[in-house]
Design a protein around this nucleic acid. Structure first.
Length: 859
RNA sequence: GGGGGCAUGGUGAAAUUGGUAAACACAGCAGACUUAAAAUCUGCCGCCGUAACAGGCUUCCCGGUUCAAGUCCGGGUGUCCCCACCA
């Protein structure tokens, strides 16, 4: 057997699998189906270690499920719309499509070099009109079904780039690229009515029992259901043009008697109306608009307000008048954009009241406090207690006070019980070129008209100019000009494109059936969906996963499919991290630029300068702590990269990529290669298939260990405990090496153990195991074979060693036959010298024997 | 401010879900082979203690439940993540 040349072996087997079509999925099968999916990548140009981890995890699952008799669907595609392509166009003058498709070519080759068991016949790119034509149709169906609408909404506007910015793109109140101060603008935007499903999206989380708890909790919080009351406060004097009441939402109607003011958002319609004739208010509104919506500015901002001079009547006692303020801490897009301030029991309200000298009236008395002496000064009391200073509510608990207050509000016709949600409708309009065009037409006479279905897809123009600021489609000389499908007059196309989350919200359905004529067939979706196991980064815990759940419901409502939830099992993998390095000038260095010198010292390879070895962080280009998977694959082979990815760290936890770890994985692969070689005597000694009739103890031990390894790995794989699987593989290989005896039985046992080891390792390191398997004389590929089965009779050990404790402290061990009589174990335990010594002739008070586990003597 | 996770040797981790803590690796140390190095093989490797045994201690800290706690309960510390003027 020759030296191990991993790259050429890997190419060989990748070709064989492809020629045999091992991984192509077909609905015509009597096996149970299994759909395993990893989050598809954005084609940035090169794969990174995060991809390697994600796709290795999925591939192991897919290969094991296939071997265990499932009809497996394991597809791959490209989430191909997005900003980087536009940036490339701006920087290099290349069309985003060209850039994207070239990247896809390169990345596909890289993925193929990993030996992933994909059905490549189902591949697609979302930027292709043959994909996005269907989502344009979906959007029109959403419009018909009242699930898509256009409305004015406040956005972060970059005045230099002429585009909307996401909150994440606003840095210190300025555009991330232009550096220009961001403005708040009211803009007409398309929305998808995700809130139509709030209740269902929330309730159904309950049933997602194969999802990580933290993802479920995050979605739960994101949807954010809160129960409370909507209250109308009557204005004492109504300014001209205003409604005569102010609507307020509260979760604490029980504290109404503690109200001391009303505060409205700066962009509340009433404030905007008043600001026209009130300089102080006008300036305040301007100031708030300048602030933008970014987190940093909100946090830094001081709580401020302006007295409007208006007052409202207290709903329970019209004699009480409350002043109305405009305040910067009230949000127009949550609740009603107005609050009542209950200074005693809300910290923010208390701060505001103290600042503007408004009364603080505590109405909840903590347990054990005296109503005459209890005071709230700097810290609001938000806990439980009995209501007081509250007329008819006096004496009630907070819990009872809430419904009582609501009942009274309803009786007085000044409020109702209500539920509000944190979840907002999904704004999908983007002023971007490289996205799916929104298929509507604006006509001056007919208004908004959908593009007729026979004119789909609306495709992006090829000749675009990225040198001007703003959206290139809007700037295009002819693209947007068209005729109105209704009246035939001159009209303009919508120039906004969809948020790129639109594409990823249904791609898993398309994989079930990439038919050129329809988005997907109901039958294919019925067969393959839901995805049995979805795997990806936790950063998508809310947006992508929630949008996909919404899409499934919206598509069901439009008659596309019959499915409750898209993803039955979800697993979130941890990040791949690496140590960071900085040179003396504080510049980040690539790991390839440094080498280790002694214990904890690192130097720059070319200059020998000492470098700072910093924290272990997520691999990122900006910190240069990246390792290029291609170099690992071409150097060590994909099997090594895959094995290392699965070793040591559990998948959901962050892992550190280390050179020594890769070396370790590589060493094991070489060891396996050597073990199976002729020189060693295990590999080529084919002793036939029948187990010898007489087995010596060493052979029995090895055969038993092999069966137990099958059992433990089979279980651990199902539970994604791949690090334990790798440990078990190492152990079995150690057992093989340890069994050195020279007997027919042991030769047979070693051969059996080795073949099993190779099969068990195949999902993780598929290439080398196929090569060894072939060298061992097998014709069939492991990729086409069934998973080994553990023989139950070999799982039982002849003797086991259990611990013996005295008063809970270990004093020795005894060897027993499994399931032996308790009295035998007790007798053996009491006979131990370590136990005798402590008992010192006394009889034990009590002896607890837990069969096959432990004996505890209470002295 | 609200919600959630995590905490075990020098390091990554394991612990049959309340039953012998540290499996399997990485790093390290010693030895074998070699002219030499690499590769490979063998042995050691939680801490204190001892010449070696013996013995004691040990799962972030304090307390509790239990024959028995890394695991369950109460309190605290540290750390990471998500959300956040959310009414």
């Amino acid at each position: 057997m020759s030296r191990l040349d991993a790259p050429s072996i890997e190419r060989k087997w990748q070709q064989r699998w492809q020629d045999a079509g091992c991984f192509n999925a077909d609905m015509a099968s009597d096996k149970p189906k299994y759909y395993v999916l990893e989050m598809f990548p954005y084609p940035s140009g090169r794969i990174h270690m995060g991809h390697v981890r994600n796709y290795t995890l999925g591939d192991v699952v897919a290969r094991v499920k296939r071997a265990r008799g499932y009809n497996v669907l394991h597809p791959m595609g490209w989430d191909a719309f997005g900003l980087p392509a536009e940036n490339a166009a701006i920087e290099r003058g290349v069309h985003p499509a060209k850039w994207t498709y070239e990247n896809i070519e390169g990345m596909r080759e890289q993925l193929k070099s990993m030996g992933l068991s994909y059905d490549w016949s189902r591949e697609f790119a979302t930027c292709d009109p043959s994909y996005y034509r269907f989502e344009q149709k979906m959007f029109l169906d959403f419009m018909k079904n009242d699930l898509a609408y256009k409305k004015e909404s406040w956005v972060n506007w970059d005045p230099v780039e002429n585009t909307v910015l996401a909150n994440e793109q606003v840095v210190d109140g300025c555009g991330w690229r232009s550096g220009a101060p961001v403005e708040r603008r009211l803009l007409s935007q398309w929305f998808l009515k995700i809130t139509a499903f709030s209740e269902d999206l929330l309730n159904a989380i309950e049933g997602l029992d194969r999802w990580p708890d933290r993802v479920r909790i995050m979605q739960h919080n994101w949807i954010g259901k809160s129960k409370g009351a909507r209250i109308t406060f009557q204005l004492t004097e109504v300014p001209s043009g205003a409604d005569n009441g102010i609507e307020v939402f509260t979760t604490r109607p029980d504290t109404l008697y503690g109200a001391s003011f009303i505060a409205l958002a700066a962009n509340h319609p009433l404030i905007l109306g008043l600001a026209e004739n009130n300089t102080a208010l006008h300036d305040f509104v301007e100031e708030c608009n300048r602030m933008g919506t970014s987190q940093a500015t909100i946090e830094a901002a001081e709580k401020k307000g302006v007295d409007t001079g208006l007052t409202v009547d207290h709903p329970f006692d019209p004699a009480i008048k409350l002043p109305v303020y405009a305040a910067n801490f009230v949000l127009m897009d949550y609740g009603t954009g107005a609050i009542f301030g209950s200074a005693g029991h809300d910290q923010r309200d208390l701060d505001f009241a103290n600042k503007y000298n408004l009364p603080v009236i505590p109405v909840v008395l903590p347990e054990g406090e005296d109503p005459d002496t209890f005071k709230v000064t700097d810290t609001a009391y938000t806990g439980d207690g009995r209501l007081y200073n509250s007329d008819f509510l006096n004496g009630m608990t907070v819990e009872d006070g809430i419904p009582a207050a609501i009942a009274k509000l309803e009786e007085l016709n000044s409020g109702t019980g209500e539920t509000t949600w944190r979840l907002r409708d999904w704004g999908v309009s983007r002023q971007r070129f490289w996205g799916c065009p929104i298929p509507v037409i604006h006509c001056d006479t007919c208004g908004i008209e959908p593009v007729p279905e026979d004119q789909l897809p609306v495709t992006l123009p090829d000749d675009v100019d990225f040198d001007q600021p703003g959206n290139p489609i809007a700037n295009h000389p002819t693209w947007k000009h068209t005729t109105c499908p209704k009246c035939g007059g001159k009209a303009e196309r919508e120039t906004d494109t969809f948020d790129t989350f639109f594409e990823s919200s249904w791609y898993f359905l398309r994989f079930a059936d990439p038919d050129p004529e329809i988005a997907f067939s109901k039958e294919a979706v019925k067969y393959w969906l839901p995805v049995d196991q979805y795997i990806g980064g936790v950063e998508h815990a809310v947006l992508h996963l929630l949008y996909s759940r919404f899409f499934t419901r919206a598509l069901a409502a439009c008659g596309y499919l019959d499915l409750d939830e898209p993803f039955d099992g979800m697993m979130t993998q941890g990040m791949v991290c690496h140590q960071t390095f900085k040179d003396q000038n504080g510049q980040w260095l690539f790991p390839t630029e440094v080498e280790r010198q002694g214990e904890d010292q690192w130097v720059k390879t070319d200059t020998d300068q000492i470098v700072d070895a910093g924290r272990i962080e997520k691999m990122s280009k900006s910190k240069r702590n990246v390792v290029d998977p291609e170099l690992i694959i071409s150097g060590y082979g994909a099997d090594t990269a895959r094995l290392f990815m699965m070793s040591d760290s559990p998948p959901e936890r962050d892992m550190e990529w280390t050179n020594s770890g890769v070396e370790g994985a590589s060493r094991f692969i070489h060891k396996l290669w050597r073990m199976s070689s002729s020189e060693n005597g295990i590999g080529l000694a084919d002793l036939g298939t029948a187990m010898p009739e007489t087995l010596d103890d060493a052979a029995k031990t090895l055969i038993g260990a092999t069966h137990r390894t099958i059992a433990s790995i089979s279980e651990d794989i199902e539970r994604f405990r791949f690090n334990r699987c790798v440990a078990a593989l190492y152990s079995l290989s150690n057992s093989i090496t340890d069994a050195k005896g020279d007997s027919k039985a042991q030769d047979w046992a070693r051969r059996f153990a080795l073949e099993t080891l190779v099969q068990l390792m195949a999902p993780i390191a598929p290439h080398i195991t196929e090569e060894i398997w072939e060298n061992l004389g097998h014709d069939q590929m492991i990729a086409e074979m069934a998973w080994p089965e553990a023989d139950p009779k070999w799982l039982i050990e002849e003797t086991i060693s259990i611990g013996v404790q005295v008063n809970g402290k270990l004093r020795g061990t005894i060897d027993i036959v499994p399931d032996c009589d308790k009295s035998i174990a007790e007798e053996l335990a009491l006979a131990l010298p370590g136990v005798q010594k402590i008992l010192d002739g006394q009889a034990p008070k009590k002896v607890i024997v837990v069969p096959n586990r432990i004996v505890n003597v209470v002295a």
